[in-house]
Amino acid sequence: MILHELITYDTLRLIWWVLLGVLLIGFALMDGFDLGVAMLLPFAGKTDIERRIVINTVGPVWEGNQVWLILGGGAIFAAWPLLYAVSFSGFYLAMFAILAALILRPVGFKYRSKRESARWRRNWDWALFIGGFVPALIFGVAIGNVLQGVPFRLGSDLRIFYEGSFFALLNPFALLCGLLSVTMLIMHGANWMILKTEGDIRARGRVFGRWASIATLVIYALGGLALWAFVGGYQVTSTFAPDGPSNPLGKTVAVAGGAWFANYAAHPWTIIAPVLGLLGPLVVLLALQLRREILAMAGSAMAILGIIASVGLSMFPFILPSSIQPEASLTVWDSSSSHMTLFIMLVVTAIFLPLICAYTTWAYKLLWGKVREKDITDGGHAY
């Protein structure tokens, strides 16, 4: 038996669909609070010292947290080449805006305190705000467009033709999803700030955390209702082979209202995802009332897990539907790399992902504790 045949092709495809979700959720959990803290920076700190405290809650860890974004992009490129090609071509300007905003983050951290000028530092604070807000918004807008279907088609030779525009991405439902992403990450960032600070900053964090958790709960519920009432879902209407070749044009697809909710009826256990998405913000509200900082952080993590997982589970087996040529929609079963490629990548992932998790755990244990004013005024490695 050839080594890669130890795991069947359809099983490998399913494993990599799960791993893609794990990497996206890992990015939202780990780098999400960095983005949330950046969005809160101009409002959470009233003085320069307070803002430096806020920055130093994420300063030592943000670079390591971005590893999850790199892993996610690499996984899409290697495991789902058609998904990578379509999404990075169709969302080119949106991706460019995200990268431009993310570039502001390291520059802001390094240059903010290089001058004593209040105006200089204030401008960099707003640059860091943009570096958090723009990626959070656009990632959510992208998910909103994926749920509605992306305007691409495939030729008979599988050449990709994208027929959308950047401004068409900014439709009402997608913007609602973008707003949900913003409030969700602000909630996560506020809880991290509460966990890492004291005094007035922590008190303001509680206020931001409460309002963001309420907004996340309401917007997620409204988004679910809008998805049911106004957004057509996709269903494969022909027989297909889960271990067949990667040719998206070998199936037929129908679009029907409420189709994205069919998986919850077919597999009732999947309802746990939206339940966690709704329960998480309520846990945050309760934890903030009880002043249980770690529980509040767990609640926002629960919300992120549930909200992102609910998208993947409702869409399965689709990973990128086409709004103008439904049969060209990409699914788990017809848009992956080869059997051998998926197996080799799985072996590599099984080796390196635990190492990344172990190193991350060690780093956070080493850096555990509050960021205090004396840590800033004493100098050292403070930003």
Rank of each mutant, 00 (worst) to 15 (best):
V107N: 12
F88S: 03
P151E: 04
P245L: 09
L278F: 04
A273D: 14
G233N: 07
A190H: 03
F261V: 11
W120V: 08
N263C: 10
W211L: 13
L282M: 13
T47F: 09
W260S: 13
A226F: 06
I344T: 02
M187P: 03
I15F: 03
A309F: 00
L24P: 00
Y9G: 04
T237N: 07
L179V: 14
L353A: 14
E50L: 06
G26S: 09
L12G: 01
G189C: 05
G149A: 10
E198K: 09
L40Y: 10
V236T: 08
R121H: 07
A118G: 08
Y383P: 00
A296S: 10
F43C: 01
W260A: 12
S238D: 06
A287S: 13
F91R: 09
I103F: 13
R119V: 06
I70M: 15
V283T: 09
I271C: 12
T237W: 02
F27E: 08
N171C: 15
S181V: 14
T360G: 08
G178W: 06
A212W: 01
L276T: 11
P321I: 11
R291G: 10
V236D: 04
D10K: 03
V58I: 10
V141L: 15
A28Y: 15
R119A: 11
R206H: 07
L276M: 14
S322L: 04
F208E: 03
G380T: 03
P42D: 15
A190Y: 02
A168G: 08
G223C: 05
L24W: 00
P106T: 12
